[in-house]
Every structure is written in structure tokens, then in C-alpha cells.
């Protein structure tokens, strides 16, 4: 059972239905659209920062979470997960293949979205002299790719644990959008705890000082590593559970 064959089988699955195409196209288009809107509403004589331009990554991330979760939950919904496990009874190899594929696609989508946003913004707003010159700019633009990769890994893991679309999507949209940003509202413990929220850490990596975290302990690079560890850890739990459970 070679890894290449399993990834290839998973890519036939992913690209032979329409919804992943839509999710991925929108995940690229929305951030670029957001960047366009941000630049057009910005004063033409004031430079706009790369962080402002890339803020739309969050919309792309939502769609990548949806795409990755559905890649798992629709298989449970339509019973093809059973056929999959029948074909690959070890389960873990095929689930890893799916994760690699979905996360890889998510990374590409993130790269296209971020470079597209940057491109559109620098065309429309030459005064800003946007580019990839500084470490901060590199992170804010190219960093979208690894953030999308790990987001997709988290979504696959949640999909495997919850096994149904509505539940998985509710968790994946409410958690990063509402729960994590609102943690700081909790008195005294809220703010120190917030920076250990995974999607907050990812945001800190991308946006550095502009992120919501008040007093960061981790450096931006360490924040990305932390986000990755959370994603991989969650996936490991999900793989163990999927292996043990009746399909």
C-alpha cells in the first residue's frame, strides 16, 4: 500500500465532487477581494502595511476549515468511509494520506491567496512599496501557507472525531471566530490564557505586534510551531480513535 497510491486515491475523491472546488476557489478569492477593498478604502498618499492587506486570510482560513472537515465528514455521511476502511483496513495510512492531501491543497490555496492579495495591493497602491523584504513581511505573506496547512490538519482531526458535518463545522467556525477572541474577557486569567489558544497563536505568527495578544510569551516563529504541535497532537488523537471505533 504505497503512500503515493493512497494520496492519489484521496485526490480522486477530493476533486471528483464539486464542493471542494468551490471552497478552495472562494478561499483564494475572498482574501484577494478583501485586500482589494482594504487598499481602495485606504488614503492614496498613506502607505498601507502588509498586515492590513493580509487581514482577509481569516476568510480564507474559514473556507479551508470547511473544505478539510467536509473531506472527512461527507465520507461518514455517505458510507464511503466504510468502503475506504475495507480497502485499507489499517485505516491510519489512508487517513494520513487524506490529511497530507487536504493539508497540501490548503497550503497551496493559502500561498495563492496571500501572494494574490499582495500582488493586487501593490498594483493598486504603489505608494506603500509592499514587498517581501522584511522578516515581518515574509511571515505575513508566505506564513499564510503553513497556517492553512495546520488549520486543515485540525479540521480533518475534528471531522474524524465528530464524524458529522454540522457538528464539525459548528466547532470549527465558532471556536476560532468566537471562543478564542472572547477568552480575554474572562477576568484575570483571560489574557494570559488567550495566547495559548491555537488560532490566536497562528494570528500572532502572521500579524506579530498587530495581533490581539497583549503580552506575548512566544516569539512569532514559536507561535507557529505551537500551532503545529496542537494540530498534529489533535490528529494523533483522532487517528487512534478512528482506528479503534466501529466504522
Amino acid at each position: 500500500m504505497s503512500a503515493v497510491n493512497l494520496i492519489s486515491a484521496e485526490s480522486i475523491k477530493l476533486f471528483s465532487t464539486r464542493s471542494p472546488w468551490w471552497c478552495n476557489l472562494l478561499a483564494m478569492a475572498l482574501p484577494v477581494g478583501f485586500a482589494t477593498a482594504a487598499v481602495l478604502s485606504w488614503p492614496t498618499d498613506l502607505p498601507i502595511s502588509v498586515t492590513e492587506v493580509q487581514l482577509g486570510y481569516q476568510f480564507g482560513m474559514m473556507l479551508v476549515l470547511v473544505m478539510a472537515a467536509l473531506a472527512v465528514t461527507t465520507e461518514y455521511r455517505f458510507g464511503t468511509m466504510r468502503t475506504t476502511f475495507q480497502a485499507v483496513p489499517g485505516r491510519t495510512p489512508v487517513l494520513l494520506a487524506k490529511t497530507v492531501l487536504v493539508a497540501g491543497v490548503a497550503g497551496l490555496v493559502g500561498l495563492v491567496a496571500a501572494l494574490g492579495s499582495l500582488g493586487v495591493a501593490s498594483l493598486l497602491h504603489p505608494v506603500s512599496e509592499l514587498g517581501l523584504g522584511t522578516a515581518h513581511e515574509l511571515r505575513a505573506v508566505l506564513g499564510v501557507a503553513p497556517v492553512f496547512v495546520f488549520s486543515a490538519v485540525i479540521a480533518v482531526a475534528v471531522g474524524l472525531l465528530v464524524r458529522q458535518s454540522a457538528g464539525a463545522l459548528a466547532i470549527l467556525l465558532v471556536w476560532p471566530m468566537l471562543v478564542e477572541p472572547l477568552v480575554s474577557v474572562i477576568p484575570t486569567v483571560g489574557e494570559p490564557v488567550q495566547q495559548w489558544m491555537p488560532f490566536m497563536a497562528a494570528d500572532h505568527f502572521l500579524r506579530g505586534a498587530s495581533s490581539m495578544i497583549a503580552d506575548p510569551v512566544l516569539s512569532p516563529a514559536a507561535s507557529l510551531a505551537y500551532f503545529g504541535v496542537v494540530a498534529v497532537g489533535l490528529l494523533a488523537v483522532a487517528l487512534v480513535v478512528a482506528r479503534r471505533r466501529d466504522a
Binding site: K13, T17, F78, G79
Partner: peptide, 15 residues
């Protein structure tokens, strides 16, 4: 146990 939006051929091909 087939994805309703996938063609019969694609279903067999991934398998």
C-alpha cells in the same frame, strides 16, 4: 455507500 455527486467511474477509480 457512494457519494451521490461522484460519478460511478470516479467511485471505482479511487477504490
Amino acid at each position: 455507500w457512494v457519494h451521490p455527486n461522484r460519478s460511478a467511474r470516479a467511485h471505482l477509480r479511487w477504490m
